[in-house]
Amino acid sequence: MANKILGILEQREGKLKKVSFEVLSVVADLAEKLNLESEALVVGNEIQNIDETLNYGVNKITHLKNENLSAYSSSGYTDIISEYAKELNAKYLVFANTALGKDLAPRISVRINGGCIVDCIHFEISNGEFIATRPVYAGKALVDVKFRSDINIITLRPNVFKPLKKDKSSSAIITVKDIQNVNLKTRTIEFKKSEGKLDVAEADIIVSGGRGLKGPENFYLVENLAEVLGGAVGASRAAVDAGWRPHNEQVGQTGKTVSPSLYIACGISGAIQHLAGMSSSKYIVAINKDKEAPIFNIADYGIVGDALEILPKLTDEIKQLKS
């Protein structure tokens, strides 16, 4: 009988990512609610922090290992995970909705005849039926979706589900298995890291700047505040289109969708396409000269004023708090 739920963990450069612990927590939680046995799987070469997986209520963790698997290969990972899920006869598969999870989950769904619901932010079991909630139209609406398939695959929006540590059970184990003959039809030949900076998609705090910053030369103010907060720098499309900031910092409907704990919008008007990418942030702060700017409609706290003047003082005040 298919009574298993399998979480797929994600590592980059030999380190499990924070989303992996979110996946583990959801797997443990759903296993309890749906009365399933839980397992987790990670594909990679050496993984430094794999021991940390034992503390989240999933007792069986499998690491499938090969030196050609340290970097992502869509063909290789798809083959290996599909085979594992088939053998396990898993009924549910859980991924993180990252570039990797989004790439893999739909392919694996075809291989194992499963349905796929991506970017979930909430689950409910109602009359024995599993229902997932996800944003559509860039978060302007939500849908409740159910599966019509026997095998069910979900991906979780990062930063929404809390990684919940549990007491470590004595029976929790990690098994490492070597994999032979990896299918490298599609292979990563290089990873070009953005210069040492935190990515908006992974940051818990984001400070974003828009056209109100007046020019690229003022973005150091945004960078400084992001730095004291340990956060990432984001930008509106106006700032990106003007060439002030790189596209990978763009937040919004055609940029990245983020849900950090804190989002500080500086000199950003709050156009509907920008809000689409950040309105699910837990706390939103707006600094804008125009008190009518739509960003204030969704901000928890706002200051009506000149960002160029406020930013350095805010940075100093937070520095003081932290010291």
Partner: peptide
């Protein structure tokens, strides 16, 4: 391809 934290160069 654009991924979190950088770009992956992929061959196929």
């Amino acid at each position: 391809r654009e991924i979190e934290g950088g770009k992956e160069v992929v061959e196929s």
